[in-house]
Design a protein around this nucleic acid. Structure first.
Length: 307
DNA sequence: AATGCATCCAACCGCAAGCTG
DNA sequence: ACAGCTTGCGGTTGGATGCAT
């Protein structure tokens, strides 16, 4: 028997997501949580396959995503991690909160690869590119190793950043062994534990005065919530063209990140309430939506009951 | 203004791993 | 142990955009 396709391809939509589709998906996830992606499109009223929905949510709609280019620090982290982990983008992403594997992969292919090549470093092996014979290459490699490392530091991080960065490189080099350890000891939640381990490094680093995130954090009370009346032309509800998915992103960036949401009174790790979104999403959701009720996320966890 | 080329990145595809009955 | 199903991952593609001529 042949492999069953991930979805029934007949009649399913492909290509860029529309604002309307985004609304439906957001609405559904907020009401039901992330569960059983295969069933999501049907229940959410989307003509997409579950895979496409999952990708759209994890890579684009999730409110805890950072936006914008990777900072120099993040870029250096990616290079360090790539040197240890290779093309394991999801692993690398797990060490960079708010970044997706797809984003990092794209950034690697479009920016970092070129930078490294310019510096004479093979982006695959992280070693100097040489046309010399193997023996010569080995000698050159040994000789150049420290120089290449310095080059990376110079080009990717301004000197002041290097000096002020308290991130212990040894801590970073320990990540792989920690990963391996986690994989061996804790198969239930390796991704989370890896991220947590690294988060603790970040936290320690931040305690020394280094901000890992160049995107300014917005306090919950500082979040500006556009309404259809108040919003600028670029964020007004009328700007939701059916052919562009970038507009909804402009609006979603006002959402608080998961990190900023209260972690109490829940059993899922999500303490946020629908009200945290409601004012922002008022203009995204249907008028007859029930989203303005004070319903906690886990109270909305109805999907399992449907199955 | 028009055209062609280069770059970027969201989304797709196929495969592998993990889970369940 | 096995087969089928779901989810996650990494490689690749192609449309959108920017830039140079």
């Amino acid at each position: 028997m042949g492999r069953q396709p991930c979805c029934d391809k007949v009649g399913l939509k492909k290509g860029p997501w529309t604002a309307e589709e985004d609304k439906k998906l957001i609405n559904f996830i907020l009401n039901n949580g992330q569960c059983c992606w295969r069933a999501v499109p049907k229940l959410a009223g989307l003509l997409r396959c579950g895979k496409s929905c999952r990708l759209r949510w994890t890579n684009y709609l999730r409110p805890d995503l950072k936006r914008g280019l990777l900072s120099e620090y993040e870029e250096k982290m990616v290079i360090d991690l790539h040197a240890q982990l290779g093309n394991r983008w999801s692993k690398i992403a797990s060490h960079l909160p708010g970044r997706t594997d797809n984003e990092i992969k794209n950034h690697w292919n479009t920016h970092i690869k070129k930078k490294l090549k310019k510096m004479g470093i093979d982006p695959v092996t992280h070693k100097p590119i040489s046309t010399a014979t193997t023996d010569q290459a080995n000698i050159l490699e040994q000789e150049n190793q420290p120089i290449q490392q310095e080059k990376i530091q110079e080009i990717l991080m301004p000197q002041k950043d290097i000096e002020s960065s308290p991130i212990d490189q040894s801590a970073i080099t320990e990540i792989k062994s920690e990963d391996d350890e986690n994989n061996n000891n804790n198969n239930n939640d390796t991704g989370t534990s890896c991220a947590n381990n690294f988060d603790s490094i970040i936290v320690e680093a931040n305690n020394n005065g280094f901000c890992t995130d160049e995107v300014p954090l917005i306090e919950p009370h500082e979040i500006l919530v556009p309404t259809s009346q108040e919003s600028t032309p670029s964020t007004s509800s009328s700007s939701f063209s059916s052919s562009s998915s970038s507009n909804i992103l402009e609006d979603l960036k006002f959402l608080p990140s998961f990190d900023e949401w209260p972690m109490e009174n829940n059993n899922m790790g999500f303490g946020w309430e629908i009200n945290d979104f409601s004012s922002t999403l008022d203009f995204l959701l249907d008028d007859d939506s029930d989203m303005t009720n004070n319903v906690t996320f886990d109270e909305c966890w109805k999907f399992e009951q449907l199955l």
